[in-house]
Computed example of a mutant assay.
Amino acid sequence: MPLETLDRSPPPFFKQGPSALSQLVFFSALALFLMVADARFQIVQPLRAVIATVLYPAQWLALQPVQMVQTGLGYLTDLKTARVTEEAARVKLAEQSQRAGQVEQLLLENERLRQLLGLRERLQVASVAAQVLYDATDPYSRRVVIGKGQLQGIEPGSPVMDESGVLGQVTRVYPFVSEITLLIDREQVIPVMNTRTGTRAVAYGDPSPRGGMMELRYMAVTEDVKEGDLLATSGVDGVYPPGLPVARVVSVDRRSDTSFTRIQCAPLASCRA
C-alpha cells in the first residue's frame, strides 16, 4: 500500500481541543468577569445564601464543643473572681465598720471638748457650682474664668474647689463671670498642714511661667516630710476651711549646703490652665 494513502490524522479519541494557553486565557477572563460582576451586581449572593443555609447546621455542631469549653472556663474564672471579690469586700466592710466606730467616738470626744472649751461649731460654708469657661488673657499668670459672678453671689477672696481638692481663690468678680487664681500661680500662697505629722507650713505656687507644681518653703532639713505625704488646709488664714485636701508631696531634696529642704508638691485639683 503506498504511504501517501495513509490517514495521518489522530483518531477521534485523541483529538486535541484548544491549546492549554487558550484555555488559561479563557478561564482567567471568565473568572475575572465573574469576580467583577459579583462585586458590582451581587450575582452570586443567592448562591452564597443557599450554601450558608445548608452548611449552618454543620457549623453550629462544630462550634458547640468550643463554646462549651469556653463557657466552662468562663464560669470557673467568674467563680474564682467572685470569691476573691467577696473576700475583699468582707475585709473592706470590716475595716469600714471599724473606722465608722472610731469616727463616731472621735465626733463624740470632739463635741465634749468643744463643750468644755466653749468653742463654737465649725462654720458651714455655702457653695456654688460653676464651670470653667476659658483661661485668663495674662500669659504670665495661672488664672481661669468661671461662668458665675456677682449676680450668683460670688465674692472676692472665696476659696474654689473641684472634686479632688482646692483649686484656687477668687481674685476678680464681674457681674456674670469671675476670675480665679490657681494655686500653682507664682503669687498664690496657702497655709497647709501635713496630715501625717500635723506640721504646719506654707505652700507657694510654682515660680516658673508654665509650671504645674507647688513648693513648701522654709522647711528645716530636720522636719519629718516624706514623699507621698498629704497636705491639707490648716485654716489659720481664715480663707480656706481646715481639712481641705491641697497637694501631695512628690519630692524631698535635703541639701547639705543649706538649712532648708526643697520640697515639691503636686496639687490634687486639676490646676491646668
Rank of each mutant, 00 (worst) to 15 (best):
L34N: 04
P241Y: 08
T85P: 00
T53W: 04
K92W: 06
E111A: 15
V50W: 13
R40L: 12
P156G: 05
A266S: 12
V25W: 09
D253E: 11
Q169A: 02
F13C: 06
R272S: 10
Q188F: 03
D229P: 08
D138R: 12
A29L: 15
E109R: 15
P242F: 04
K80W: 11
E121H: 04
L24W: 12
Q64S: 08
P46Y: 11
T195A: 06
V25T: 06
V84P: 00
T77V: 14
G205P: 00
I190V: 15
G153D: 07
N194Y: 04
R172M: 13
T5K: 10
M219P: 03
T53Y: 01
G238S: 02
R217M: 12
D78C: 00
G157D: 09
V54Y: 10
Q169I: 06
A94N: 09
S270I: 05
Q102D: 09
G198F: 09
A201K: 03
I190S: 06
P245T: 02
V173L: 08
G243F: 05
T261Y: 03
K148R: 15
D78R: 15
R48A: 08
E121R: 13
A58L: 14
Y240D: 05
Y134F: 08
V160A: 02
Y140S: 13
A31V: 15
L63F: 12
W60F: 06
A58N: 04
R200I: 03
L6R: 12
G147E: 03
I180P: 04
F26H: 11
A266V: 07
S141E: 14
V91S: 09
R122W: 08
L24Q: 05
S127A: 12
Y218T: 05
A58Q: 09
V225Q: 05
L73T: 09
L183K: 07
A129M: 12
P209R: 15
Q45L: 10
R210M: 14
Y174V: 00
I180N: 05
Q23H: 14
R196A: 15
P175G: 04
L107Y: 11
E109C: 02
V54P: 01
G211R: 09
S259M: 04
L116Q: 10
A89N: 10
V145S: 05
G165V: 02
D162W: 11
A94H: 06
A20R: 09
E95K: 13
G228A: 04
N194E: 07
L32M: 14
P241G: 05
R90Q: 12
D135L: 11
S97Y: 01
L231E: 15
G118N: 07
M68S: 14
E4M: 03
S259H: 10
V125I: 11
S97G: 01
E215K: 10
S28M: 08
G165N: 01
P12T: 02
L6E: 11
A129L: 11
P191Q: 10
L133F: 00
Q169P: 01
G212C: 04
A247L: 02
R114P: 02
G157V: 03
L24N: 11
G198W: 07
E104R: 15
L30H: 08
V125Q: 01
G101I: 01
S259I: 07
Y240T: 00
Q67G: 11
E109L: 10
R262M: 01
M213C: 12
V36M: 15
R90G: 01
F260K: 13
I43D: 06
